[in-house]
Computed example of a mutant assay.
Amino acid sequence: MFSWRLWLYASRTFWCLLPFLISPIGVAAETYDQCEQQFAPRSGQPGKDVMWVATIDQLVTAMLRAAHVTNKDRVIDLGSGDGKIPIAAAKQFGATALGIEYNPELVQLAQCYARVEQLTDKVQFEQGDIFTTDFSSATVVTLYLGPSINLRLRPKLLSMRPGTRIVSNAFDMAEWQPDQLIEADVGNTRAFLWIVPARVEGEWKFTEVGGKESFTVRLQQRFQRLESSPATDSRVAVQGGRLVGNRMEMVVSGLEKHPTTLTGEVSGDRILVAMTKGTAIRRYVGVQL
């Protein structure tokens, strides 16, 4: 015989248990304290290559702001620890973010924090080795590692797309001078910003657009700096210059009576530059020889 009382009891039991039934591992944590019941890192905790030390919140914001992070960016944090930087990139700036961390317990903690912040659609964390993991999809790379680790990573960072922003907490890249020094308004904290430069080293022939003039120069590049180089065609020589991603400024002698500044950008396998003299603008297209 059908029992309405038994049916009502079973129905109530089902709805009470539903959150547990649909959750893959129980109920998601609702607070940071609940996340830390399973694992709570301590400052100075040793890791694979470096010890774990949390980045100060104010510096996290300053780093991401200096990198001009927006909702169009993909931020990848190398050695992401408890996930503070990727979570801040998504929460404060709307970016998508990935944290790469070797310690699986820190990965689980960061994932828990992301669930608390309801950011799992924008932030992911994965266990991995930063020296073997592919992070080339990043438009912004953040790190808090150490001087020797930074130098090991430097060739890989320099090979990334021109314009990629690299931000390092506390530690520099030796002779690769930063494009900006970042300081937070708390304690003795600082970070460094680099913008990956285009690679232009070599001999280039520049031809005036709509004109007949052309000249050949040898570009010698030292990270984002163009260094002085002798004239290739005995007429025009490079005195220096600078690259900011694909944007380029080059000072040459020989085109005019005085040294001349050419500004423009690297576009694929060409360099497009212009020289302004009064109201007149002369444009040149450079191809590598």
Rank of each mutant, 00 (worst) to 15 (best):
V140K: 04
D121R: 02
L109Q: 08
L98W: 11
Y144P: 12
L143K: 01
F135G: 10
P104I: 12
D129Q: 12
L98F: 09
L145K: 07
V107N: 04
C112V: 12
S148E: 14
Q92T: 05
I130G: 09
T133Q: 11
F93V: 10
T132V: 10
F93Y: 14
K122H: 12
K122M: 12
L119P: 04
P104L: 10
R115G: 15
Y102K: 13
K91W: 05
Q108L: 14
F135E: 07
Q118Y: 08
I100A: 02
K91D: 08
S137A: 13
A138I: 13
Q108W: 10
I100N: 03
Q92N: 13
L106Y: 11
P104Y: 08
V123H: 06
P104A: 07
E126T: 15
L109I: 08
T120C: 01
Q118R: 15
P147S: 06
K122L: 14
T133R: 14
V140M: 05
F93K: 03
L145M: 08
L106R: 15
P104R: 03
L109T: 12
D129F: 06
T139E: 08
S137Q: 13
P147V: 08
G146V: 10
I130C: 09
V140F: 01
C112L: 10
G99E: 05
S137K: 15
L98V: 15
F93C: 02
K91G: 08
A95C: 09
T142L: 01
Q127G: 02
Y102H: 15
G94N: 14
Y102V: 10
A110K: 12
T133Y: 00
G146L: 09
L98H: 07
E117K: 04
I130V: 10
D129E: 12
G146Q: 08
T139F: 02
E105K: 15
V107R: 01
S148G: 04
D129I: 14
E126L: 14
A114I: 08
A110G: 12
Y113W: 05
P147W: 01
L109W: 06
L98Y: 04
I100K: 01
L109N: 05
V141D: 02
F93I: 13
